[in-house]
Amino acid sequence: MKNSKASAPAKAAVPQNQLGEFLRAKRDQLRPEDVGLPPGFRRRAPGLRREEVATLCQISPTWYTWIEQGRTQAVSTDTLGAIAAGLHLSQAERAYLFELAARADPEQPAVVDSAPHLAKLVQAVRTPAYILDRHWDAIAWNRPAALLFEDWLRAPARGGRNLLRYVFLHPQAPAFIVNWPERAQRLVAEYRSDTAAWRDDPVRQALVDELRSASRAFDSAWKSQKVLSREGGLRAFEQARSGRRDYEQFTLRVAQHPDLKLTVLVPGELA
């Protein structure tokens, strides 16, 4: 007699060691002659041996084996850089390697060189738009954004154009940002998530220490350990001259610089 209950669909297997699988795939794709090694004889599998990759990366074979087998999570940025060079990874592959290892690449392309192009991008947007770097400093914005965020973008205080410094340290921010307590707490949770890969960055640590010391609201939100993704949604601001302004916020990543965020605010009547 057949079972009348429908069988549950089988769950697809989820790779548990994506970093190791990526390294193994790249190792298999390389031939000894591609990296200046003699071809040798009696290779039972295509590609390079682990010992050969370790030699190219100037790390111990045991350590490389542990990394590939997923037996350690403590892979330094120096080791990742050496592996990227040893395996002849492209820039995109190197970025993917660091992402899999949850580390920030210290040799990522400089943002400063792209600032003129990014400025052209935000100037082409008709509604308020701005770009934040990985420390949440505004590096480009258009005129509508400057008119809306006058205290932050047009006339920055001592803290410069850092979004968190503005939200937590500028005296006018709580009155300007509608529902400031909730929005401020969410920003801290988003910042923690957004900069997790930069947790060892001294600039990040200095900013967090500064804000924790200067703002009890930031300190409390930071201690809560909440983590949220930086998403869009409804935003509202109370301007002294024109009253309340409602927007829908969209946050996008810049492809060439994934640590940069493009934020566009679409007025409520257009959203």
Rank of each mutant, 00 (worst) to 15 (best):
A124T: 08
R94H: 10
A197D: 12
V112Y: 08
Q91P: 07
E52N: 05
R199P: 05
R158Q: 12
A184R: 02
G86C: 02
D246G: 03
E210V: 06
Q69K: 08
F168Q: 07
R44L: 03
Q256K: 06
K11G: 00
R143I: 14
N179L: 04
L97P: 02
A82W: 05
V75I: 14
A173M: 09
L270D: 08
R230S: 14
L234R: 12
R245G: 03
I59P: 04
D34W: 13
D201G: 09
A189W: 05
D78L: 10
Y191T: 08
A104S: 15
D201T: 03
A101C: 05
G86M: 02
G160M: 12
V254R: 05
R158K: 08
L97N: 11
Y166Q: 06
T62A: 06
S7K: 14
A189N: 10
A6H: 10
A184M: 00
H170L: 11
E51G: 01
Q249P: 06
N3S: 12
R49D: 00
L100M: 08
D105W: 05
H117G: 08
P9N: 12
D113H: 11
A82F: 03
P32S: 11
E107G: 04
Q73C: 02
A184H: 02
A45W: 00
D133S: 04
L270M: 15
E51N: 05
L262T: 05
A82Y: 03
P116N: 06
G232A: 03
P116C: 09
Q249I: 07
